[in-house]
Write a protein that binds this DNA or RNA. Structure first.
Lengths: 223, 223, 223, 223
DNA sequence: AATGAATGAGGATTCATTCAT
DNA sequence: TATGAATGAATCCTCATTCAT
């Protein structure tokens, strides 16, 4: 695993790439994106700074790769869970499963909060296209699984639901992890109102949302 | 309006402060936060760079003030609309009213997308507290108005709904206004899936959400 | 002269600018352009690095300003000398005067050797235009003085002669000040052939050139 | 020609060396020295970067070899032309022949403009000595040919003339091929004065110079 | 209160060169 | 001999913020 010296084979290179990503992710856990320098990542990964740029064309690309990985893992877990209880799934199960899958992915949450504002700048067009194309496949696939689990969903509503969840996750993550001063302030009891627990909020919002969808499926979307 | 030379009275100072904010907002319309320098704002406002720091302790504080203003205006409009058709409001009206109030506030949307990740750093504790406290009042007030308009809402659910809306707006704004490369890529027809129209998405999501809430109010939140 | 603290008036600013240039020129005397860093210049000038960029938009612009100054001084001396013995000037006097004016300007020579390959890159269009325009005036003026001193010169031949001198100076400077290894090698007696003394070469070449021009003026340029 | 795999014999090695040089020269035609990376040359030559360093100790050495080649070819052509019309050569012929020989060697011109400032740094002492020694031979030889063609030249004046031509070529090349911004600016009609056509200038300058030399030979160098 | 000159930490990125394989 | 992964020094420039005037 250690991979001393040079990575000659494609496998070894993949390994080194992975090790850089692992190190970056670990450091990202305690350091905000802005404050996390390529210098530091290189030092942690015990490689020269230049080596970083051998594997990633820019800092943004490195973190986008991180996000892509985390996203893939999330989809993996989601798909597995959905496939497991494919039939006879109450939508409470689905909601729970969605929230559980996010609960243990703090890095994924922190990354998703900055993908669109930070990581998708200064990145190669082709890189983004590949990333988005892959993401599309997964969204469609997982969307279909959702449709299978939630019978009241019409075709295409699975993918659309994932989009809405995406938005919710981004938004709640912003609210749940305030930065710097705000984090301090929200500890004051008068401001308890603004303290957000991502999982709880997501749970309740998704639940309500799915109920609404189920209702609309049954009685039409008219009031 | 010209406001040449020194602002001595409190009124004059308020005027100058406002003029700086106006100028900053105007420029923010065509320049992303990162690329909008204090230099540029000062030049546009026909004021020395140092003067900016007489009115705002940091760049973040300036933009937080901008956000506070926009937020207040949004609440103003919301409150007015909700008060107008206080009784006999279908929830479709409420949804429409909410979306309409956002449709014409592009700057508010761009600001809300970065408040928690960018603007609430490097800001004075007191400033944030004042801001949050004021925000709390408005949330509670508008929350109450929502409860009045939507009879199926239980106490405190109005404010909670606003929180959820907040998250949705942040999330959809991120998806709807991709930066740099992503914006280009999403023009490609195969990636149409990821093209998000904020208003539409908000409309449909809110509608469904409210339906879910109405349903839960009627039949309990159990399945 | 020391100019401690801030330069508020235009005069003081000019002074500081000049002091930076002076320092840079001094350091350029013993350090090749490539090895002379902005860091070093800032340190020598006892200003922050950023201050350098307040006065010059880039390293190249700083050195172009240096060259412009040296060029102006050269023209000044040339013009003065030419005006002094305006009438009754043997062309030997003119040749001597030209060579003398260069002999004590080693920095000018080192700068002229890199203006076209290095300094005119990464510079603002307007800056170059202003520089070239000013240079044109001086070339025309000094060209006219040359025509006055050397009666065999036809109109416009003065400026053209300056152009040729320019080329000769660049070329001979390259040959006369070899860099690094070459400098060492040329010390070997077998390679004496390549040792060039700029002043001597310029003297003999200019002399011959003027003789040729005088001859052409008298007998036509046909053989 | 393909030269796949290893070059074992001296011939094969020479061939590979030549192929690298060819490729580098081709790329140098459209890319300035600074922007032409060893990476790019290796890629173009379908060779690993390390292989480059098997044949040339540094980037500078590679380009110096390029220059040496071009220089040799130039001398070859010059010698051939001079030998052909050895007797009965008007000096107009010689001037023409010199200019013609340069007209079609743009790469030679671009290289000669940077030999002394760039290429002779970071090169092995022995390499430079060998290069200079060979150059000396050719200068003396071609110098002698010039003396044969131009009867008014005294012994050693042929080589000296080549030195002067060298300087002129360097200088005029600098003026004729301005970089970046300067190239743009000189297109403006008011700056037409600075637009230099290398061939024309060289023609007129050499002509005048030779006339001067002829005159001096006839009447002495005194006025 | 207003100015705007000065600050200087800060960080990404390049690329010639080396060396393990 | 060939490879190409790894190196890491080297450097420019930005820009929010301060503070002397």
């Amino acid at each position: 695993m250690a991979l001393s010296s040079r990575a000659m084979t494609a496998d070894q290179k993949q390994l080194r790439r992975a090790s850089i990503l692992t190190v970056a992710l670990a450091r990202f856990a305690d350091t905000p994106y802005n404050e996390l320098t390529m210098d530091r990542i290189a030092a942690d990964a015990a490689v020269a700074k230049g080596t970083l740029y051998l594997y990633f064309r820019s800092k943004e690309e490195l973190f986008l790769a991180l996000y892509a990985d985390e996203l893939a893992r999330w989809f993996d877990e989601l798909d597995a869970s959905l496939e497991k209880n494919r039939r006879a799934t109450s939508f409470d199960n689905v909601v729970q499963l969605l929230c559980d899958s996010l609960k243990n992915r703090p890095m994924f949450l922190r990354l998703i909060a900055i993908v669109h504002t930070v990581l998708e700048r200064n990145v190669d067009l082709t890189t983004v296209r590949r990333f988005k194309t892959r993401m599309k496949e997964r969204v469609l696939n997982t969307g279909a699984l959702l449709e299978a689990s939630l019978p009241f969903l019409k075709p295409a509503q699975g993918a659309d639901l994932l989009l809405k969840i995406n938005a919710l996750v981004i938004g709640f993550q912003h609210l749940a992890e305030p930065s710097g001063v705000a984090a301090e302030i929200l500890k004051e009891p008068e401001l308890a109102l603004f303290r957000v627990n991502l999982t709880e909020q997501l749970l309740s919002t998704l639940r309500t949302l799915l109920m609404g969808l189920a209702y609309q499926a049954k009685y039409g979307s008219e009031k």
